[in-house]
Amino acid sequence: MRKENLFLLFLILTVLLIFLYPSLGWKIRDLITVSGTQNPDYKNLVLENQSLKADLAQLSGLKKELPSYSGNFIQASVYSNYPFNFKSELLVNRGEKDGVKVGQPVIVFSVSSKPVLIGIVEEVFRNNSLIKTVFDSRFQLSVRAGVAGANSLLKGGSNPKLTLIPKDSKIENGDAVYSVGSNYPFGLTVGIVRNFRLSSDQFFGEADLETAYNANDLQIVSIDVAYNVKNPKQ
């Protein structure tokens, strides 16, 4: 067989695989990717610690009268993730047929089953969905931090940031950050505050958001399929 014909055959076979058996590519990619080296027990403990801090902050705040969040969660396996920079998307094995809708919150559970928000459903297919995580530069969420409940805007990215924090807020490193956005369940843990400082314009404070997980290491996530999204475009 001529050399050109071999490449043509290789090309045709690969294109067929891309459309008919994309999971083969995901499996090959799994083989050539090193996952995070963090100890899973340690990660679970940090997740647990963060969600307990968020509970404490919530209970000490003004929203004591609100019912605690309990959704109808379905577990989803992560197939693949966005391979380039700036965005962070996960492809999971649950889709329209499982009741998944755009905008529903996606979480991971700590050891004592406390939910920690990792992102939202961005796009839904028949059998799969794409999740936009807090590490995506397009992700934004209204949050509160610490027992005092300082308001802030979480801006996603490879290093998520808490912005627009009133500069006189009593925030300390290690304070829990929880969701208050209108399109998200109230009081879901997102992470903890790190490196609180004044912003460059000196009008507000800003801080880094520390999470107890790495989006590239996630293998199982949970989607709240009962959550009624008010405005999925947001």
Binding site: T14, I18, F19, P22, E89
Partner: peptide
């Protein structure tokens, strides 16, 4: 593309 594609269809 086979390895990097992260969606059900490219």
């Amino acid at each position: 593309i086979l390895i990097l594609n992260w969606r059900p269809l490219p």
